[in-house]
Deep mutational scan, measured.
Amino acid sequence: QLNAMAHQIQEMFPQVPYHLVLQDLQLTRSVEITTDNILEGRIQVP
């Protein structure tokens, strides 16, 4: 299920590496919260 959620987020934010999306999802278990984390700059994109 997390993989499906990660792919959904990757479609919206292809610039964010998959492993970072998955790592955040493991903590949040939420597409909405992880999306917010990306938008708020809480996930550092190399």
Rank of each mutant, 00 (worst) to 15 (best):
V16C: 08
D36W: 15
I33L: 12
S30I: 01
Q15G: 11
L27E: 13
A6C: 00
T28V: 01
Q44A: 09
Q23L: 12
H7K: 15
M12H: 07
A4K: 11
Q10D: 02
T34V: 02
A4Y: 13
I9P: 00
F13I: 02
A6W: 06
M5R: 04
V21S: 01
Q15A: 10
M5D: 06
R29H: 15
A4H: 12
F13G: 01
I38K: 01
F13Q: 01
E32W: 08
P17M: 05
V45K: 09
I33S: 08
H7F: 12
S30T: 04
D24P: 01
L22H: 05
N37M: 01
A4R: 10
Q8N: 07
H19A: 07
Q8K: 13
Q8F: 13
I33C: 07
L25V: 05
I43A: 02
L2A: 04
V21D: 00
Q8W: 09
T35W: 07
I9K: 00
Y18C: 07
L20Q: 06
E32R: 12
P17R: 03
D24V: 02
M12W: 07
E32H: 08
E11I: 14
I38L: 07
Q44L: 11
E32L: 10
I33K: 14
Q10M: 15
E11M: 15
E11K: 14
I9E: 00
E32P: 07
I38Q: 00
G41H: 06
Q1A: 11
Q1V: 13
P14S: 04
N37V: 00
A6D: 01
Q26W: 14
H19G: 08
N37G: 03
V45E: 10
N37Y: 00
R29W: 15
Y18V: 08
T35A: 11
A6M: 08
R42V: 05
V16G: 01
Q44S: 11
N37L: 02
R29A: 13
P46F: 12
Q23C: 07
D24Y: 04
V21G: 01
E40T: 09
D36P: 01
L22M: 10
M5L: 12
Q23E: 13
H19R: 08
E32K: 14
P17E: 06
P14G: 04
V16I: 15
P14K: 05
L39E: 06
I9M: 06
P46I: 13
N3K: 14
M12Q: 11
L22V: 09
L20A: 08
P14T: 04
P17V: 06
T28R: 00
T35F: 07
H7S: 12
H7Y: 12
I33T: 08
L20V: 09
N37W: 02
V16Y: 09
Q26D: 08
L27G: 07
T34G: 00
D24K: 00
E40S: 14
T28I: 01
L22G: 00
E32I: 09
E11S: 12
L22F: 10
D36E: 15
E11Y: 10
R42L: 08
S30D: 06
N3L: 15
R29G: 15
N3M: 15
V21N: 01
M12I: 10
P14H: 04
Q10S: 13
L39R: 14
L25K: 00
H7T: 12
R42G: 04
Q26A: 13
T28N: 04
L20S: 06
I33N: 07
I33M: 08
Q10P: 00
I43Y: 04
N3D: 09
F13S: 01
H7A: 15
I38A: 02
Q23S: 10
L2M: 10
P46C: 08
P14D: 04
R42W: 07
F13H: 07
I33Y: 07
V16A: 05
Q44T: 11
Q8L: 14
L22Q: 05
Q23K: 12
E40C: 10
I43F: 09
I43G: 02
V21L: 11
Q26I: 15
Q44I: 13
Q15S: 12
I9S: 00
Q26H: 10
H7I: 13
Q26V: 11
L39P: 00
A4I: 13
L2F: 11
R29P: 04
P46L: 10
D36M: 15
H7E: 11
S30L: 02
V21Y: 03
N3S: 14
T28D: 04
R29N: 13
M12E: 07
N37D: 01
A4E: 13
E11T: 12
F13W: 06
T28A: 01
T34F: 00
P17D: 07
E11L: 15
G41K: 06
R29L: 15
Q44N: 10
M5N: 05
A6F: 06
I9A: 02
L27M: 13
S30W: 01
L22A: 04
L20P: 01
H19V: 08
L39S: 07
A6I: 10
Q15W: 14
L27P: 02
H7V: 11
Y18F: 15
L2T: 05
